[in-house]
Amino acid sequence: MQIALIVAGVLFCAGAVAALYRVIQGPSLLDRVIASDVFVVTIMCVLATEMALNHHTETLPVLLVLAAFAFLGSVSFARFMAKQDQT
């Protein structure tokens, strides 16, 4: 049980660090957009894991808000890129 928890934590952290690396390193703006999306979903998964392990559901609305913001951010960036490209 404890070992499985540690493994899951390490995997979550590795995923988040990889996404952050791509945000910093990313050759183009679109790479950064994708990577920040991955980062937000990783945060959502970690929050949900904490809820599942501690048998409570207080942060469920936070998940909904995070999902909405990730979506709006990515879409507006993609539109901005398309606009910029036309000129």
Partner: peptide, 15 residues
């Protein structure tokens, strides 16, 4: 939880 963490890890490595 392990499956979910594996998926997040795969997403990061894929990036």
């Amino acid at each position: 939880v392990l499956l979910s963490s594996l998926m997040c890890f795969a997403a990061g490595v894929g990036l």
